[in-house]
Design a protein around this nucleic acid. Structure first.
Lengths: 192, 192
DNA sequence: CTCGATTGTCTAGCGGTGCTAGGATCGAAA
DNA sequence: TTTCGATCCTAGCACCGCTAGACAATCGAG
Protein backbone atom coordinates (compact mmCIF):
# COMPACT_ATOMS: atom_id res chain seq x y z
CA UNK A 1 0.00 0.00 0.00
CA UNK A 2 2.79 2.38 0.90
CA UNK A 3 4.09 2.35 -2.62
CA UNK A 4 0.77 3.31 -4.09
CA UNK A 5 0.39 6.03 -1.53
CA UNK A 6 3.76 7.46 -2.39
CA UNK A 7 2.85 7.49 -6.05
CA UNK A 8 -0.41 9.20 -5.35
CA UNK A 9 1.44 11.77 -3.28
CA UNK A 10 3.97 12.40 -6.02
CA UNK A 11 1.23 12.68 -8.55
CA UNK A 12 -0.64 15.24 -6.46
CA UNK A 13 2.59 17.11 -5.97
CA UNK A 14 3.15 17.23 -9.70
CA UNK A 15 -0.35 18.54 -10.22
CA UNK A 16 0.35 21.36 -7.79
CA UNK A 17 3.56 22.04 -9.67
CA UNK A 18 1.65 22.36 -12.94
CA UNK A 19 -0.84 24.82 -11.50
CA UNK A 20 1.83 26.85 -9.72
CA UNK A 21 4.00 26.97 -12.82
CA UNK A 22 1.09 27.97 -15.03
CA UNK A 23 0.23 30.75 -12.62
CA UNK A 24 3.81 31.92 -12.37
CA UNK A 25 4.26 31.95 -16.12
CA UNK A 26 0.97 33.78 -16.61
CA UNK A 27 1.90 36.45 -14.08
CA UNK A 28 5.32 36.87 -15.63
CA UNK A 29 4.44 36.94 -19.31
CA UNK A 30 0.65 36.83 -19.59
CA UNK A 31 -1.67 33.93 -20.34
CA UNK A 32 -0.80 34.03 -24.03
CA UNK A 33 2.66 32.84 -23.08
CA UNK A 34 1.24 29.87 -21.19
CA UNK A 35 1.35 27.27 -23.92
CA UNK A 36 1.28 23.58 -23.22
CA UNK A 37 4.75 23.24 -24.68
CA UNK A 38 6.31 25.94 -22.52
CA UNK A 39 4.46 24.71 -19.47
CA UNK A 40 5.62 21.16 -20.07
CA UNK A 41 9.19 22.30 -20.50
CA UNK A 42 9.13 24.29 -17.26
CA UNK A 43 7.91 21.36 -15.21
CA UNK A 44 10.42 19.16 -17.02
CA UNK A 45 7.91 16.69 -18.36
CA UNK A 46 6.54 16.13 -21.83
CA UNK A 47 3.32 17.72 -23.03
CA UNK A 48 1.05 14.67 -22.71
CA UNK A 49 1.71 14.55 -18.98
CA UNK A 50 -0.39 17.69 -18.63
CA UNK A 51 -3.29 15.85 -20.18
CA UNK A 52 -3.07 13.08 -17.64
CA UNK A 53 -3.88 15.67 -14.97
CA UNK A 54 -6.21 18.03 -16.82
CA UNK A 55 -8.54 17.69 -19.76
CA UNK A 56 -6.85 20.59 -21.44
CA UNK A 57 -5.56 24.09 -21.08
CA UNK A 58 -8.88 25.51 -19.95
CA UNK A 59 -8.95 23.17 -16.96
CA UNK A 60 -5.51 24.39 -15.96
CA UNK A 61 -6.81 27.95 -16.13
CA UNK A 62 -9.74 26.82 -14.02
CA UNK A 63 -7.43 25.35 -11.41
CA UNK A 64 -5.53 28.63 -11.14
CA UNK A 65 -8.86 30.42 -10.85
CA UNK A 66 -10.01 28.27 -7.96
CA UNK A 67 -6.73 28.83 -6.17
CA UNK A 68 -7.16 32.55 -6.72
CA UNK A 69 -10.73 32.54 -5.46
CA UNK A 70 -9.63 30.99 -2.20
CA UNK A 71 -6.88 33.56 -1.74
CA UNK A 72 -9.16 36.41 -2.62
CA UNK A 73 -11.70 35.30 -0.05
CA UNK A 74 -8.97 35.23 2.58
CA UNK A 75 -7.69 38.66 1.61
CA UNK A 76 -11.12 40.23 1.61
CA UNK A 77 -12.09 38.73 4.96
CA UNK A 78 -8.80 39.81 6.50
CA UNK A 79 -9.24 43.37 5.32
CA UNK A 80 -12.84 43.49 6.49
CA UNK A 81 -11.99 42.11 9.90
CA UNK A 82 -9.49 44.89 10.53
CA UNK A 83 -12.14 47.58 10.12
CA UNK A 84 -14.36 48.66 12.99
CA UNK A 85 -17.37 50.31 11.36
CA UNK A 86 -19.57 49.01 8.54
CA UNK A 87 -18.53 51.97 6.41
CA UNK A 88 -14.85 51.30 6.95
CA UNK A 89 -15.42 47.59 6.43
CA UNK A 90 -16.88 48.14 2.99
CA UNK A 91 -14.13 50.57 2.04
CA UNK A 92 -11.47 48.15 3.21
CA UNK A 93 -13.14 45.36 1.28
CA UNK A 94 -13.21 47.44 -1.88
CA UNK A 95 -9.57 48.41 -1.56
CA UNK A 96 -8.43 44.86 -0.89
CA UNK A 97 -10.46 43.58 -3.85
CA UNK A 98 -8.92 46.08 -6.25
CA UNK A 99 -5.53 45.50 -4.71
CA UNK A 100 -5.83 41.77 -5.26
CA UNK A 101 -6.81 42.30 -8.88
CA UNK A 102 -3.92 44.67 -9.46
CA UNK A 103 -1.35 42.45 -7.76
CA UNK A 104 -2.50 39.22 -9.37
CA UNK A 105 -3.66 40.21 -12.84
CA UNK A 106 -3.24 36.77 -14.34
CA UNK A 107 -5.15 35.10 -11.53
CA UNK A 108 -7.87 37.70 -11.83
CA UNK A 109 -8.06 37.02 -15.56
CA UNK A 110 -8.33 33.31 -14.92
CA UNK A 111 -11.19 33.97 -12.54
CA UNK A 112 -13.25 36.47 -14.47
CA UNK A 113 -11.95 37.08 -17.96
CA UNK A 114 -10.85 33.75 -19.36
CA UNK A 115 -12.80 30.60 -19.88
CA UNK A 116 -11.71 28.22 -17.18
CA UNK A 117 -14.70 26.00 -17.73
CA UNK A 118 -16.13 26.95 -14.36
CA UNK A 119 -19.82 27.18 -13.59
CA UNK A 120 -20.96 30.36 -11.92
CA UNK A 121 -24.19 31.21 -10.18
CA UNK A 122 -25.35 27.61 -10.26
CA UNK A 123 -25.73 24.96 -7.66
CA UNK A 124 -22.76 23.08 -9.09
CA UNK A 125 -20.52 26.10 -8.71
CA UNK A 126 -17.22 25.06 -7.11
CA UNK A 127 -16.98 25.77 -3.40
CA UNK A 128 -14.14 28.33 -3.57
CA UNK A 129 -16.18 30.51 -5.90
CA UNK A 130 -19.25 30.37 -3.73
CA UNK A 131 -17.11 31.14 -0.72
CA UNK A 132 -15.49 34.14 -2.37
CA UNK A 133 -18.92 35.54 -3.09
CA UNK A 134 -19.91 34.75 0.49
CA UNK A 135 -16.91 36.73 1.72
CA UNK A 136 -18.20 39.75 -0.16
CA UNK A 137 -21.73 39.16 1.03
CA UNK A 138 -20.70 39.08 4.68
CA UNK A 139 -19.52 42.67 4.67
CA UNK A 140 -21.72 44.08 1.94
CA UNK A 141 -24.98 42.59 3.14
CA UNK A 142 -25.03 44.79 6.21
CA UNK A 143 -24.97 47.98 4.13
CA UNK A 144 -27.53 46.99 1.51
CA UNK A 145 -30.13 49.27 3.01
CA UNK A 146 -33.76 48.67 3.85
CA UNK A 147 -35.80 46.71 1.38
CA UNK A 148 -32.81 45.80 -0.77
CA UNK A 149 -31.93 42.15 -1.05
CA UNK A 150 -28.37 41.61 0.28
CA UNK A 151 -27.55 39.26 -2.57
CA UNK A 152 -28.67 41.74 -5.20
CA UNK A 153 -26.75 44.52 -3.52
CA UNK A 154 -23.62 42.39 -3.37
CA UNK A 155 -23.93 41.57 -7.06
CA UNK A 156 -24.14 45.22 -7.99
CA UNK A 157 -21.31 46.29 -5.73
CA UNK A 158 -19.18 43.44 -6.93
CA UNK A 159 -19.90 44.31 -10.55
CA UNK A 160 -18.80 47.86 -9.89
CA UNK A 161 -15.54 46.70 -8.38
CA UNK A 162 -15.06 44.29 -11.25
CA UNK A 163 -15.61 47.07 -13.75
CA UNK A 164 -13.11 49.33 -12.03
CA UNK A 165 -10.57 46.52 -11.80
CA UNK A 166 -10.75 45.45 -15.43
CA UNK A 167 -11.06 48.88 -17.02
CA UNK A 168 -8.15 50.18 -14.99
CA UNK A 169 -5.91 47.29 -15.78
CA UNK A 170 -6.77 47.28 -19.47
CA UNK A 171 -5.78 50.94 -19.71
CA UNK A 172 -9.36 52.04 -20.25
CA UNK A 173 -9.27 54.13 -17.08
CA UNK A 174 -6.33 56.24 -15.96
CA UNK A 175 -4.59 54.42 -13.11
CA UNK A 176 -4.54 57.44 -10.84
CA UNK A 177 -7.65 58.36 -8.89
CA UNK A 178 -8.25 54.86 -7.66
CA UNK A 179 -8.84 56.06 -4.15
CA UNK A 180 -11.40 58.78 -4.96
CA UNK A 181 -13.25 56.26 -7.13
CA UNK A 182 -13.46 53.85 -4.22
CA UNK A 183 -14.58 56.64 -1.91
CA UNK A 184 -17.31 57.66 -4.30
CA UNK A 185 -18.50 54.12 -4.80
CA UNK A 186 -18.64 53.36 -1.09
CA UNK A 187 -20.21 56.69 -0.14
CA UNK A 188 -22.99 56.34 -2.66
CA UNK A 189 -23.73 52.64 -2.75
CA UNK A 190 -23.40 51.69 0.90
CA UNK A 191 -26.15 52.63 3.32
CA UNK A 192 -24.54 53.15 6.71
CA UNK B 1 -7.27 60.17 -62.73
CA UNK B 2 -10.63 58.48 -62.87
CA UNK B 3 -9.06 55.05 -62.95
CA UNK B 4 -7.05 55.66 -59.82
CA UNK B 5 -10.07 57.06 -58.09
CA UNK B 6 -12.09 53.99 -58.97
CA UNK B 7 -9.37 51.78 -57.57
CA UNK B 8 -9.23 53.77 -54.38
CA UNK B 9 -12.98 53.51 -54.05
CA UNK B 10 -12.93 49.77 -54.60
CA UNK B 11 -10.16 49.41 -52.11
CA UNK B 12 -12.08 51.35 -49.48
CA UNK B 13 -15.12 49.26 -50.24
CA UNK B 14 -13.17 46.08 -49.71
CA UNK B 15 -11.87 47.38 -46.42
CA UNK B 16 -15.43 47.99 -45.26
CA UNK B 17 -16.28 44.49 -46.40
CA UNK B 18 -13.48 43.05 -44.30
CA UNK B 19 -14.60 44.85 -41.16
CA UNK B 20 -18.28 44.04 -41.70
CA UNK B 21 -17.51 40.38 -42.37
CA UNK B 22 -15.29 40.11 -39.32
CA UNK B 23 -18.00 41.61 -37.17
CA UNK B 24 -20.67 39.37 -38.64
CA UNK B 25 -18.58 36.28 -38.17
CA UNK B 26 -17.73 37.27 -34.61
CA UNK B 27 -21.36 37.86 -33.71
CA UNK B 28 -22.39 34.58 -35.27
CA UNK B 29 -19.69 32.29 -33.92
CA UNK B 30 -17.55 34.31 -31.54
CA UNK B 31 -14.17 35.92 -32.05
CA UNK B 32 -12.38 32.59 -31.81
CA UNK B 33 -14.01 31.66 -35.09
CA UNK B 34 -12.67 34.79 -36.75
CA UNK B 35 -9.46 33.41 -38.23
CA UNK B 36 -7.64 35.08 -41.05
CA UNK B 37 -8.31 32.06 -43.25
CA UNK B 38 -12.05 32.00 -42.66
CA UNK B 39 -12.27 35.75 -43.01
CA UNK B 40 -10.35 35.66 -46.28
CA UNK B 41 -12.57 32.93 -47.61
CA UNK B 42 -15.74 34.84 -46.75
CA UNK B 43 -14.64 37.96 -48.56
CA UNK B 44 -13.46 35.78 -51.43
CA UNK B 45 -9.86 36.93 -51.38
CA UNK B 46 -6.70 35.27 -50.21
CA UNK B 47 -5.27 35.78 -46.74
CA UNK B 48 -2.50 38.24 -47.64
CA UNK B 49 -5.07 40.72 -48.90
CA UNK B 50 -6.12 41.27 -45.29
CA UNK B 51 -2.59 42.34 -44.49
CA UNK B 52 -2.62 44.95 -47.21
CA UNK B 53 -5.42 46.67 -45.31
CA UNK B 54 -4.54 45.94 -41.69
CA UNK B 55 -1.33 45.19 -39.85
CA UNK B 56 -2.88 42.07 -38.44
CA UNK B 57 -5.85 40.57 -36.74
CA UNK B 58 -5.73 42.95 -33.79
CA UNK B 59 -6.15 45.92 -36.09
CA UNK B 60 -9.23 44.31 -37.59
CA UNK B 61 -10.62 43.91 -34.09
CA UNK B 62 -9.76 47.54 -33.46
CA UNK B 63 -11.68 48.60 -36.56
CA UNK B 64 -14.76 46.72 -35.38
CA UNK B 65 -14.35 48.34 -31.98
CA UNK B 66 -14.30 51.85 -33.43
CA UNK B 67 -17.39 51.12 -35.47
CA UNK B 68 -19.06 49.84 -32.32
CA UNK B 69 -18.05 52.88 -30.29
CA UNK B 70 -19.73 55.15 -32.79
CA UNK B 71 -22.92 53.12 -32.73
CA UNK B 72 -22.94 52.93 -28.96
CA UNK B 73 -22.60 56.69 -28.69
CA UNK B 74 -25.57 57.08 -31.00
CA UNK B 75 -27.66 54.58 -29.06
CA UNK B 76 -26.87 56.11 -25.70
CA UNK B 77 -27.58 59.66 -26.88
CA UNK B 78 -30.84 58.58 -28.47
CA UNK B 79 -32.02 56.87 -25.30
CA UNK B 80 -31.00 59.82 -23.15
CA UNK B 81 -32.77 62.31 -25.40
CA UNK B 82 -36.06 60.49 -25.05
CA UNK B 83 -36.07 60.94 -21.26
CA UNK B 84 -37.38 64.06 -19.63
CA UNK B 85 -35.87 64.13 -16.16
CA UNK B 86 -32.21 63.68 -15.17
CA UNK B 87 -33.17 60.60 -13.18
CA UNK B 88 -34.92 59.02 -16.13
CA UNK B 89 -32.13 60.08 -18.44
CA UNK B 90 -29.57 58.18 -16.40
CA UNK B 91 -31.80 55.13 -16.15
CA UNK B 92 -32.40 55.16 -19.90
CA UNK B 93 -28.70 55.51 -20.52
CA UNK B 94 -27.93 52.57 -18.28
CA UNK B 95 -30.53 50.38 -19.95
CA UNK B 96 -29.41 51.29 -23.45
CA UNK B 97 -25.78 50.64 -22.53
CA UNK B 98 -26.53 47.18 -21.17
CA UNK B 99 -28.85 46.53 -24.06
CA UNK B 100 -26.14 47.40 -26.55
CA UNK B 101 -23.69 45.09 -24.80
CA UNK B 102 -26.21 42.26 -24.76
CA UNK B 103 -27.24 42.69 -28.39
CA UNK B 104 -23.72 43.11 -29.75
CA UNK B 105 -21.56 40.90 -27.59
CA UNK B 106 -18.78 40.55 -30.14
CA UNK B 107 -18.59 44.27 -30.72
CA UNK B 108 -18.58 44.87 -26.99
CA UNK B 109 -15.75 42.38 -26.64
CA UNK B 110 -13.81 44.12 -29.36
CA UNK B 111 -14.26 47.38 -27.50
CA UNK B 112 -13.50 46.39 -23.95
CA UNK B 113 -12.32 42.82 -23.62
CA UNK B 114 -10.02 42.11 -26.52
CA UNK B 115 -6.84 43.79 -27.52
CA UNK B 116 -7.63 45.89 -30.54
CA UNK B 117 -4.46 47.88 -30.17
CA UNK B 118 -6.42 50.99 -29.23
CA UNK B 119 -5.20 53.68 -26.89
CA UNK B 120 -7.58 54.69 -24.14
CA UNK B 121 -7.55 57.65 -21.84
CA UNK B 122 -4.76 59.33 -23.72
CA UNK B 123 -4.63 62.30 -26.00
CA UNK B 124 -4.10 60.04 -28.99
CA UNK B 125 -7.26 58.10 -28.23
CA UNK B 126 -9.30 57.67 -31.43
CA UNK B 127 -12.17 60.11 -31.77
CA UNK B 128 -15.02 57.55 -31.64
CA UNK B 129 -13.83 56.34 -28.25
CA UNK B 130 -13.56 59.81 -26.83
CA UNK B 131 -16.99 60.61 -28.24
CA UNK B 132 -18.56 57.51 -26.69
CA UNK B 133 -17.21 58.56 -23.31
CA UNK B 134 -18.49 62.07 -24.01
CA UNK B 135 -21.95 60.66 -24.67
CA UNK B 136 -21.93 59.09 -21.22
CA UNK B 137 -20.56 62.24 -19.66
CA UNK B 138 -23.33 64.41 -21.10
CA UNK B 139 -26.04 62.64 -19.17
CA UNK B 140 -24.07 61.47 -16.17
CA UNK B 141 -22.29 64.72 -15.47
CA UNK B 142 -25.50 66.39 -14.41
CA UNK B 143 -26.12 63.87 -11.63
CA UNK B 144 -22.59 63.70 -10.24
CA UNK B 145 -23.59 65.68 -7.18
CA UNK B 146 -21.94 68.63 -5.53
CA UNK B 147 -18.20 68.53 -5.19
CA UNK B 148 -17.81 65.44 -7.33
CA UNK B 149 -15.92 65.81 -10.58
CA UNK B 150 -18.21 64.86 -13.49
CA UNK B 151 -15.44 62.92 -15.20
CA UNK B 152 -14.70 60.90 -12.11
CA UNK B 153 -18.38 60.20 -11.59
CA UNK B 154 -18.77 59.09 -15.18
CA UNK B 155 -15.81 56.75 -14.86
CA UNK B 156 -17.28 55.08 -11.81
CA UNK B 157 -20.77 54.81 -13.25
CA UNK B 158 -19.40 53.48 -16.51
CA UNK B 159 -17.26 50.94 -14.68
CA UNK B 160 -20.34 49.72 -12.83
CA UNK B 161 -22.23 49.26 -16.07
CA UNK B 162 -19.25 47.54 -17.61
CA UNK B 163 -19.04 45.16 -14.67
CA UNK B 164 -22.72 44.31 -14.92
CA UNK B 165 -22.47 43.82 -18.67
CA UNK B 166 -19.46 41.53 -18.62
CA UNK B 167 -20.33 39.51 -15.54
CA UNK B 168 -23.83 38.91 -16.81
CA UNK B 169 -22.76 37.85 -20.25
CA UNK B 170 -19.99 35.61 -18.96
CA UNK B 171 -22.49 33.77 -16.80
CA UNK B 172 -21.00 35.14 -13.61
CA UNK B 173 -24.28 36.81 -12.71
CA UNK B 174 -27.73 35.30 -13.20
CA UNK B 175 -29.34 36.94 -16.24
CA UNK B 176 -32.56 37.71 -14.44
CA UNK B 177 -32.75 40.75 -12.19
CA UNK B 178 -31.15 43.07 -14.69
CA UNK B 179 -33.80 45.71 -14.11
CA UNK B 180 -33.60 45.80 -10.30
CA UNK B 181 -29.81 46.01 -10.60
CA UNK B 182 -30.10 49.02 -12.84
CA UNK B 183 -32.64 50.60 -10.52
CA UNK B 184 -30.38 50.12 -7.54
CA UNK B 185 -27.38 51.50 -9.35
CA UNK B 186 -29.20 54.58 -10.59
CA UNK B 187 -30.97 55.24 -7.29
CA UNK B 188 -27.80 55.10 -5.28
CA UNK B 189 -25.17 56.58 -7.57
CA UNK B 190 -27.06 59.38 -9.21
CA UNK B 191 -27.77 62.55 -7.25
CA UNK B 192 -31.03 63.99 -8.53
C1' DC C 1 13.11 -15.81 -10.30
C1' DT C 2 10.84 -15.34 -14.36
C1' DC C 3 7.44 -13.57 -17.26
C1' DG C 4 3.14 -11.42 -18.90
C1' DA C 5 0.24 -7.39 -17.74
C1' DT C 6 -0.24 -2.91 -16.31
C1' DT C 7 1.19 1.65 -15.70
C1' DG C 8 3.67 5.60 -16.92
C1' DT C 9 6.03 8.50 -20.12
C1' DC C 10 7.83 9.97 -24.47
C1' DT C 11 8.33 10.82 -29.54
C1' DA C 12 6.07 12.07 -33.42
C1' DG C 13 2.40 13.94 -35.75
C1' DC C 14 -2.44 15.90 -36.84
C1' DG C 15 -5.03 19.89 -38.15
C1' DG C 16 -5.25 24.38 -36.96
C1' DT C 17 -3.34 29.43 -36.04
C1' DG C 18 -1.24 34.35 -37.48
C1' DC C 19 1.68 35.98 -40.69
C1' DT C 20 4.98 36.56 -44.92
C1' DA C 21 8.27 35.71 -48.92
C1' DG C 22 8.38 35.36 -53.66
C1' DG C 23 6.49 34.38 -57.99
C1' DA C 24 2.56 34.90 -61.33
C1' DT C 25 -0.74 37.87 -63.48
C1' DC C 26 -2.87 41.78 -65.14
C1' DG C 27 -3.71 46.45 -66.67
C1' DA C 28 -1.98 51.11 -67.79
C1' DA C 29 1.37 53.82 -70.00
C1' DA C 30 5.00 54.31 -73.61
C1' DT D 1 2.86 45.98 -78.89
C1' DT D 2 5.84 45.98 -75.36
C1' DT D 3 7.25 47.18 -70.96
C1' DC D 4 6.77 47.64 -66.19
C1' DG D 5 4.72 48.43 -61.85
C1' DA D 6 0.84 47.34 -58.97
C1' DT D 7 -1.86 43.59 -57.29
C1' DC D 8 -2.84 39.20 -55.78
C1' DC D 9 -2.11 34.28 -54.81
C1' DT D 10 0.45 29.95 -53.75
C1' DA D 11 3.22 28.00 -50.61
C1' DG D 12 5.36 27.85 -46.45
C1' DC D 13 7.19 29.28 -41.66
C1' DA D 14 6.90 28.69 -36.70
C1' DC D 15 3.79 28.05 -33.46
C1' DC D 16 -0.67 26.37 -31.19
C1' DG D 17 -3.77 22.55 -28.50
C1' DC D 18 -4.16 17.95 -28.45
C1' DT D 19 -3.49 12.71 -29.22
C1' DA D 20 -2.03 8.02 -31.13
C1' DG D 21 1.13 4.67 -30.61
C1' DA D 22 5.77 3.03 -29.31
C1' DC D 23 8.56 2.15 -25.51
C1' DA D 24 10.33 1.40 -20.81
C1' DA D 25 9.64 0.59 -16.03
C1' DT D 26 7.18 -1.64 -12.51
C1' DC D 27 4.07 -4.96 -10.50
C1' DG D 28 1.86 -9.40 -9.39
C1' DA D 29 1.22 -14.34 -10.45
C1' DG D 30 3.10 -18.80 -11.20
Amino acid sequence: MSVQERKQRERAERERLIVATARELAEQQGWDAVTTRRLAERIEYSQPVLYSHFRGKREIIGAVALEGATEMAVAVRAAASRASSPRERVAALARSYLDFAARNPAVYDALFQLDGGLAFAHEDTPEPLKDAFAALLESLGEVAGDGVHPGLFTEVFWASLHGLATLTRAGRLPPEDIEPRVELLVDRLAVV
